[in-house]
Amino acid sequence: MRSVRREPPLRSDPAPSRAAYRVTRLWLSPFFRFFVRVVIPLAVVIGLAGAWALNSSHRAAVIAWVDEKRGSIADRPEFVMRQMIISGAAPELSREIREKMPVKFPVSWFELDAEELRSVVLSFDAVKDATVTLDLGGAVRVEVTERVPAILWRTHGRIEMLDDTGHRVALIDRRDGRSDLPLITGDGADKAVPEALAVFGAAGPIAHRVRGLMRQGARRWDVVLDRGQVIQLPENRPVAALERVLALQDAKDILGRDIVLVDIRRPTRPTMRLGEGAVGYLEMTRAFERGLSTQ
């Protein structure tokens, strides 16, 4: 018996229609494909975004929303900085750094700039170098390398400590405070600190007698000894000249005599000035000799 249900119709011819065929071919052409898949969506998105942003209240809303989001992230407890750790600095210096640092704790990690903080630390004279690290654990870590005072400089009624490059370290109120450091004086003396240190190093045998170095005309050094004796050093190669004087001292003990000044500004012709007693004695001796000769 034939089934009541109708037979399924024969499968229709699967040939694409002319229009479908053309559309498929159009879709397969690369330019059209690129146009539809990239150019049109981009144009639509940019166009819609532009049209929306034309309204200034929309723009303000977007900016406010971005600020709010940024603030809510910055205020999270993970990003809060609570303290500052300073290492490598003397107590007074670290106190001063703490006072001068433009940071008020607690503060968000996002509002701190390590480079800016470092420049603040470096602005201290006593600081040679510093690294500032913002640890996410909640601490600003400042590692300071201090300048080491190498010399004292008396100028304009005050005494300053300088390091071995001549950079100012700190003010000191009394010479006795650092009696272990040599003393220099005179205008522009801080510019020639390495040279001064070399001269002090060469002073060797008479070091206990050296009171200090005096810069003359911001170009050469005078070595001032106790008893008011002065050794005038030349502008060029002062250390060699000083060693020459020391050789004279070795041979003749010139500095032990009544000599006020040794002038070695011309290394080929050292000159000395006698003290007053010595001059009187010399005149007396000469007069005596003259009397003997006239008799």
């Binding site: 040939a15 065929y21 498929t24």
Partner: peptide
């Protein structure tokens, strides 16, 4: 027929 094969091959 040509449309069918060309479209499938494409």
């Amino acid at each position: 027929a040509i449309r069918t094969v060309v479209q499938a091959a494409q």
